[in-house]
Every structure is written in C-alpha cells, then in structure tokens.
Amino acid sequence: MLTMKKFALPNQSGPCRVLSFDDKCVGCNKCVNVCPMDVMIPNPEKGEEPIVVFTEECWFCGGCVQECPVGALTLVAPAKQRISTIWKRKETGEEFRVGMTNPLPPVTTPPSGNRK
C-alpha cells in the first residue's frame, strides 16, 4: 500500500476545493489578481496553476472564472450547496443536481445580453 512521505497538516476548511483548474491553465495568474478576497497565490513554479490558500474566505462570486482568458476555471460550490440545489425534469419527474453521478448533457444557451 502507499507508504510515501506524509506530512501533518491541519484540517482543510469546510468548503475545500472551491476552484478547479483544468489543463488549459498556463499559470498567467489573472485569476489570482482579480480575486477581491485574494484567496490565491501564484504558484512558485512558473506556468503552474495558482494555489488556493484561504479557501474559507472565498465568496463564490465567480469573478476569477470570468477573468480567465482560456476558460480553464470551474467554480466548485460546497457540497452542502450542491446537495441543496435540486431540479426536477417536469415530464419525467427525474431529479438532477450539480455534481451528481451520470448527469444530463450541458445546456449551451448563452445568457441574455450581447456584451462579452
């Protein structure tokens, strides 16, 4: 079994993975600099994705997601929100939510407004 080096770390905060970066991220740190709460720091290794340090201060406003030039960011609501936000498909009565297993395909209708 795994016996690699392990470190003693304090508990993660309640909401723990608030942001996930996919491999499109080039480490430009634009998201780091737009965050009002400054919850991220640039990664010491150049080009790597930033490090989220003050997770419980994240306000979930999504400013960083909109700032990312390559769309590499996804805002991850805490599990207690994901489990609270349920919708039911009217005809089938099926229930769905963000984060469920075998989800619906995405809906691609853009928001109203033509400003990008």
């Binding site: 306000w59 406003c61 997601v65 805002l75 009217k90 229930e95 939510r97 619906l104 407004g113």
Partner: peptide, 28 residues
C-alpha cells in the same frame, strides 16, 4: 438570474453546465 450578484457563474454557468434547462426543469 444571469446578471444578478453571485449568480452568473455559480448559478447560470454551473447549472447549465450540468444540464439545467428552465424550459423543462423545476427548481426545488
């Protein structure tokens, strides 16, 4: 909803990403 505070990304973008469609779905 798509323009209100803290709704554009956490609600509109994330819900639609997971398939929410107001024409078909009822939010609980």
């Amino acid at each position: 909803l798509a323009h209100e505070g803290k709704c554009r990304v956490p609600i509109y973008k994330n819900f639609t990403q997971w398939g929410f469609d107001p024409d078909k779905d009822m939010l609980q």
